[in-house]
Write a protein that binds this DNA or RNA. Structure first.
Lengths: 116, 116
DNA sequence: CTGTATCCTCCAGGATACTG
DNA sequence: CAGTATCCTGGAGGATACAG
């Protein structure tokens, strides 16, 4: 782990939110977990374009921020499960709104990017 | 300019939204412009921690995405002005919600980061 | 004042190998 | 299967100089 050089600005609400959900896969993970608890391997399968290392990393950060929680089963083979916390649930409307806006904007975005 | 290596995923609404407002200063700029048109120099003064180059860059991208518009005055010294478009206005509720969530989360964030 | 051109730093995220 | 340890690289964003 490393320190941020340009220190994170705690005074800006938007920055705080971005810190929590801004990671590349975080909002996707949250969406998945909001539909029910999931094991890491399930998430890896769902997001095949993402390397497992990064998924784990983002899970860790989400957990650290208290929006998801981990349950570990003392079994062999090892099993663990991630699920939303009540704090995490409060993010859902926000994420849903972000998705909606993006979905609505898609046609314009395609034009801008010149995608058929 | 360079191309993105990992191509942008047009199928994910959240990614689209992040592409538009995810830049470090974009949401701040949008908030400012939502209060009224502003000249570049005003924005540079408002966000002194940001280098003018980056502000200009983000203005350009916002304009390219059609959420803000530029008005150029043929004067000397040169003058220009940026303002929201109607498309851009649709982003305001989203940004406001992000700010609200972040503001609410601030106490927990401080605890997590161990800030007095 | 507005805007571009260069150059550079640094870290999120990708790839892989490994341990328990 | 879960998780960690290394190593690496692209590209956002910072700094500065300059042009119109």
């Amino acid at each position: 782990m490393y320190e941020k050089k340009i220190p994170f600005d705690i005074d800006c609400g938007i920055r705080i939110t971005m810190e929590v959900i801004g990671g590349k896969w975080k909002s996707c993970i949250i969406q998945e977990l909001s539909r029910g608890a999931k094991r890491p391997s399930e998430l890896h399968r769902l997001f095949e374009e993402a390397s497992p290392r990064v998924i784990n990393q983002q899970l860790k950060e989400l957990e650290m921020h208290g929006v998801i929680q981990k349950k570990i089963f003392a079994e062999l083979p090892p099993r663990s499960e991630y699920s939303m916390t009540s704090t995490g649930e409060t993010l859902l409307p926000l994420i849903e709104q972000m998705e909606k806006w993006g979905d609505n904007f898609r046609p314009q975005m395609k034009e801008i990017l010149n995608i058929k």
